[in-house]
């Protein structure tokens, strides 16, 4: 056992440390793909534009009246909004509006199974 030099044992030690840390990094990386995917989906699923579009047309329709023709008639347009939301966006939309004096106010409710949104709005 003469002349045995043991001042390079840190190389072996480093080998251990590096391999164990690689092992843990591999586990973390493996999980991160799943987490990243579900997060990205959750962001994509949120129907921001659908909601804005529906809100926009609902408020536009509030200023219509029933005196127009078949395509310019408030009741028809509002029924179309409900039907189109259901068939194209898979969303249940319900709304109502009232005009009194110079103010128009109403309620909008939107639900597509992922999220539900309710709003009361008043014109200025």
């Amino acid at each position: 056992m003469a002349g045995l030099k043991d001042d390079a044992q840190w190389i072996v030690l480093m080998g251990f440390i590096v391999s164990f840390s690689l092992f843990f990094i591999a586990i973390v990386l493996n999980q991160s793909t799943v987490v990243g995917q579900t997060t990205a989906e959750a962001v994509l699923e949120f129907p921001k534009n659908d909601l804005r579009e529906v809100r926009d047309v609902v408020i536009q329709s509030a200023y219509m009246n029933d005196e127009g023709g078949l395509f310019n008639n408030k009741t028809n347009v509002q029924n179309d909004i409900r039907t189109l939301s259901l068939s194209r966006q898979n969303a249940v939309v319900s709304f109502s509006n009232t005009t009194s004096g110079s103010f128009t106010y109403g309620e909008i409710h939107y639900n597509n199974g992922v999220m539900a949104y309710s709003e009361s709005w008043t014109s200025h």
Partner: peptide, 15 residues
């Protein structure tokens, strides 16, 4: 799957 109830309109949506 995405089946849902809407409480406000009492609607059941089955896909």
């Amino acid at each position: 799957p995405r089946w849902f109830y809407d409480d406000q309109t009492n609607t059941v949506v089955i896909n």
